Deep mutational scan, measured.
Amino acid sequence: LIVDEAINEDNSVVSLSQPKMDELQLFRGDTVLLKGKKRREAVCIVLSDDTCSDEKIRMNRVVRNNLRVRLGDVISIQPCP
């Protein structure tokens, strides 16, 4: 998924579009594992966002710094076991 700027300022939340959440079989409030660069990982709570496009994930600056990614970078997402 492509990293995009978050609207809310919550450090533990990322936003996906509802069709993408359905495709990944995620529900609102699920915890997910995000994988960024240099084997960096972060655990976040996923919320749906109608304004977010299907191929993007919204996260704020703190999460991006933790993953060592910038806007427009590609990250992977998976549900936490």
Rank of each mutant, 00 (worst) to 15 (best):
L1I: 15
L1K: 04
L1N: 02
I2D: 01
V3T: 03
V3G: 01
V3I: 10
V3F: 01
D4N: 03
D4S: 11
D4A: 12
D4K: 04
E5I: 10
E5S: 13
A6R: 08
A6S: 13
A6F: 15
A6D: 09
I7M: 14
I7F: 13
N8D: 15
N8H: 10
N8G: 13
N8V: 08
E9N: 15
E9H: 07
D10Q: 09
N11T: 11
N11I: 11
N11Y: 08
N11D: 04
N11M: 10
S12W: 06
S12Y: 07
S12V: 09
S12A: 14
S12D: 13
S12M: 15
V13C: 14
V13K: 05
V13M: 06
V13Y: 14
V14W: 01
V14C: 07
V14T: 01
V14D: 02
S15Y: 12
S15N: 15
S15C: 12
L16N: 01
L16C: 08
L16Y: 01
S17N: 15
S17V: 00
S17Y: 01
Q18H: 14
Q18S: 09
Q18V: 12
Q18K: 10
P19A: 11
P19L: 11
P19C: 05
K20Q: 11
K20G: 01
K20V: 12
D22H: 08
D22R: 11
D22V: 09
E23K: 05
E23P: 00
E23Y: 06
E23I: 06
E23V: 06
E23F: 04
E23N: 07
L24K: 00
L24M: 04
L24W: 04
L24F: 03
Q25R: 08
Q25V: 05
Q25W: 04
Q25E: 06
L26V: 11
L26H: 02
L26M: 10
F27C: 14
F27D: 15
F27M: 10
F27S: 15
R28K: 14
R28S: 12
G29R: 05
G29Q: 07
G29L: 05
G29V: 02
G29W: 04
G29P: 00
G29M: 08
D30P: 00
D30H: 07
T31W: 06
T31S: 11
T31G: 09
T31E: 14
T31C: 04
T31M: 12
V32W: 00
V32A: 05
V32I: 11
V32D: 03
V32M: 06
V32T: 01
L33S: 07
L33W: 06
L33C: 14
L33I: 04
L33Q: 07
L33G: 03
L33Y: 15
L33E: 05
L34Y: 02
L34Q: 02
K35W: 06
K35H: 01
K35I: 13
K35T: 15
G36T: 10
G36F: 06
G36E: 05
G36I: 02
G36P: 02
K37R: 13
K37A: 05
K37S: 13
K37Y: 12
K37G: 09
K38C: 05
K38V: 06
K38W: 12
K38S: 08
R39M: 06
R39F: 12
R39A: 12
R40H: 06
R40K: 03
R40E: 09
R40M: 08
E41N: 03
E41I: 03
E41Y: 06
E41V: 05
A42H: 13
A42I: 04
A42K: 14
A42W: 09
A42D: 13
A42L: 09
V43I: 10
V43H: 12
V43E: 14
V43M: 15
V43A: 11
C44K: 14
C44S: 10
C44M: 15
I45Q: 04
V46F: 02
V46H: 02
L47D: 09
L47H: 15
L47E: 14
S48N: 14
S48K: 12
S48C: 15
S48F: 03
S48E: 14
S48W: 03
S48R: 11
S48M: 09
D49F: 00
D49N: 04
D49S: 14
D49W: 00
D50A: 11
T51Y: 04
T51L: 07
C52A: 04
C52S: 04
C52I: 08
C52P: 02
S53F: 10
S53T: 11
S53M: 08
D54K: 15
D54L: 11
D54Y: 11
D54E: 09
D54V: 11
E55C: 12
E55L: 12
E55R: 12
E55D: 05
E55N: 14
K56T: 15
I57K: 00
I57T: 02
I57L: 05
I57N: 02
I57D: 00
R58W: 02
R58V: 02
R58M: 09
R58E: 03
R58C: 04
M59I: 12
N60L: 01
N60P: 10
N60D: 08
R61F: 06
R61V: 12
V62I: 13
V62P: 03
V62E: 12
V62G: 13
V62N: 15
V63N: 04
V63D: 13
V63L: 12
V63E: 05
V63Y: 02
V63A: 14
V63H: 03
R64L: 10
R64H: 03
R64K: 03
N65R: 10
N65Q: 08
N66D: 14
N66K: 15
N66M: 10
L67E: 01
L67Y: 00
L67W: 00
L67P: 01
L67M: 04
R68P: 00
R68D: 09
R68L: 10
R68Q: 07
V69R: 02
V69F: 02
V69A: 10
R70L: 14
R70E: 15
R70W: 06
R70F: 05
L71V: 10
L71K: 11
L71C: 07
L71S: 12
G72K: 03
G72L: 03
G72I: 00
D73P: 00
D73R: 02
V74L: 07
V74K: 13
V74E: 14
V74W: 08
V74D: 11
I75W: 00
I75V: 10
S76K: 06
S76M: 12
S76L: 07
S76Q: 14
S76F: 10
S76C: 11
S76E: 08
I77E: 01
I77T: 02
I77W: 01
I77K: 00
I77A: 04
I77G: 01
I77Y: 01
I77V: 14
Q78Y: 13
Q78C: 07
Q78R: 09
Q78E: 12
Q78S: 10
Q78N: 14
Q78D: 15
P79C: 08
P79T: 07
C80W: 04
C80A: 14
C80M: 14
P81V: 06
